[in-house]
Design a protein around this nucleic acid. Structure first.
Lengths: 192, 192
DNA sequence: ACATTAAATTGACTGCGGTCATTTTAATAT
DNA sequence: ATATTAAAATGACCGCAGTCAATTTAATGT
């Protein structure tokens, strides 16, 4: 049966993922070594790369899952009516994405799919983010002279900007959120 | 004399830079190998790393110089009065920054200084970009409800966004500029 | 049972960035 | 001239991601 072979494959992959998740929980993302993962899973180095294109592909899944959890929470919450609420809703996501410089780098690198066919986990979450925030804007309460999708894309741009600036000097959550609020205000509620 | 020692140091560094520049002109940024650079300069591997913290530090200088050349041109040009002119002014810079995926990655990684003390070449050019565009906005012609500096920072955010999206699917300058115009219009000339 | 075949796994090997104890160079003191 | 000393240069070495020809596993045909 083909099922059998697939089963072995899936088991190995699940084992690799489980070990990787465990190691990340222990030592963080940047410290993850493929060598440790394969040792923990009891397979050879090459097996790792027959399951994942490269280390980034694994990170894409791990970090993408993390982002997804936060988007779930955001989708669950009541839609924000003010910029303050909007910023507050972003806090956990922001914290997750900037927990390590390495994590942010990976997100930046993988936030756009390399090709149309193979859209990665992180790139998918960015699409989700656009959909989610666009839905908020369609409910009204913010500027209406441009499409909600465009508003959402701008959010993404400013989110990235704020996180990038955050790594410039000293890591300071307070500053990050303050800056985000300024950007969001200017983008979502222009007073011309 | 202390001068003598400094001279040797400067000569070696200049030789490394010259060889690196030459190699990049030949094969592009991503293909540069430190091994080739030191061989071309006639020094040992370790010498490279006593002159540059890491490979990124060299790239910072090379790419930073490239960006600076384009900023020189932009500063020379007559200040843009419309969004179309603004986008047109960005064309060469945009082309340079997206000539290689690797170049864009390096720019993203180094656009924020890691620490306050050591602001790199690329990070400096981003400061220059803010100053330049802020000066344009202070002349008027665009929205005035927020500080020119903030407007400029938004430009940077959208510029990054457009370049990132550019690497998502097929590389297409036309689309990149079109998208940039939409963003700039919405950011600089809100019609609320 | 046995042969065939395709997928899954293996691990020695490569490429390349980066390190560091050691050696060389050259400026200054005696 | 010679000793001293600090900077500069050296290159063997390391860590780690990623490769690939060879081997094992397991499903299918006869």
């Amino acid at each position: 049966m083909i099922k059998q072979m697939q089963k072995r494959t899936l088991e190995t992959r699940a084992r690799l993922m489980a070990v990787a998740t465990q190691l990340v929980a222990q030592n963080g993302y940047a410290a993850l070594r493929t060598e440790e993962v394969v040792q923990g899973a009891g397979v050879a180095k090459g097996t790792f790369f027959s399951h994942f294109k490269d280390k980034d592909a694994l990170m894409d899944l791990l970090i993408g899952a993390g982002i997804d959890r936060h988007l779930d929470d955001m989708a669950q919450a009541t839609p924000p009516a003010t910029v303050e609420e909007l910023v507050a809703l972003h806090r956990p996501l922001l914290r997750f994405m900037t927990q390590e410089r390495y994590v942010f780098d990976v997100i930046l690198r993988l936030s756009g799919a390399a090709a149309v066919e193979e859209i990665g986990a992180i790139a998918t979450t960015f699409g989700r983010y656009i959909d989610l925030t666009a839905a908020w804007f369609r409910r009204g309460g913010f500027r209406r002279d441009i499409p909600a999708e465009l508003l959402a894309e701008g959010m993404q741009a400013f989110l990235t900007q704020v996180m990038a600036l955050n790594f410039c000097a000293l890591h300071d959550d307070q500053k990050m959120e303050a800056r985000l609020e300024v950007y969001f205000q200017a983008w979502l509620c222009p007073k011309v």
